[in-house]
Amino acid sequence: MLPSLHTDDLHADELADRIADLIAELGDTPDAIAHHLAEAGVTGRRADATCCPVANYLRRAEPCITDVDVYGDTIDAWTVTGVLAHVLAPDEIHEFVTLFDTQRYPHLIGAAR
């Protein structure tokens, strides 16, 4: 896993790059993403942009992120200092979220955060 960012002088583009890097680590197919999340012990709630497994993974992987909304095709993340990053999610994240919300990966359904 990549080292955490420092929030003192963090810019939105740095946060967006960090999110893109973390997302890339998950894999390039919905099944690979599900496997990586399961291996990491990350779960979430279906149809909940703030507490899906991808959102929970991002908060866990990057402590400076306090809030995340994963809408499938976009990811919005905020830091403790109020920095907002808006990231276009790759197709495999959109596909994973869609499949997760339709119960394709029931082993990833669990408590929020």
Rank of each mutant, 00 (worst) to 15 (best):
V70G: 14
L58S: 03
R45K: 14
V83T: 14
G110H: 12
R60L: 07
L108E: 11
D48Q: 10
R45L: 13
A55P: 07
R18S: 06
D8V: 15
C64S: 06
I75F: 08
T98I: 05
A89I: 06
G41F: 01
A61W: 03
A12H: 13
E95R: 15
R113I: 15
P3T: 10
A89R: 05
A111C: 12
D28M: 07
P63C: 03
A34H: 02
A61P: 01
T29R: 06
I93R: 14
I109V: 15
L26W: 03
F96Q: 04
P63M: 04
A16Y: 00
P90M: 12
H36K: 04
E92S: 15
G41Y: 00
C51N: 14
A40D: 10
V68R: 01
D67N: 10
I65V: 12
I33F: 12
A49S: 09
D73G: 15
H36W: 08
L108V: 15
T7P: 09
I65F: 04
D28W: 02
L2Q: 09
H94E: 14
L22C: 03
I65G: 02
G44L: 07
C52H: 14
L99D: 13
R46Y: 11
V87C: 06
T102R: 08
D67M: 05
H11N: 10
I33E: 04
A40G: 06
T98Y: 05
T79Q: 03
D8A: 15
V54Y: 01
L15H: 00
I109G: 10
V68D: 02
T81V: 03
A112M: 14
D17A: 10
P3L: 11
D28R: 08
G27V: 02
A40R: 09
D21K: 12
T81P: 05
I93L: 12
Y71V: 07
P30L: 05
A47M: 12
T7Q: 12
L15K: 00
T79V: 01
H107D: 15
L26R: 01
V83L: 05
E14C: 05
L88R: 15
L88C: 09
A34N: 07
G27S: 05
V42E: 00
T81C: 03
T98K: 09
A16Q: 04
P63R: 05
D76W: 13
G110N: 14
E39I: 07
E25F: 05
L15D: 02
G82F: 00
A24I: 02
T50V: 11
Q103P: 07
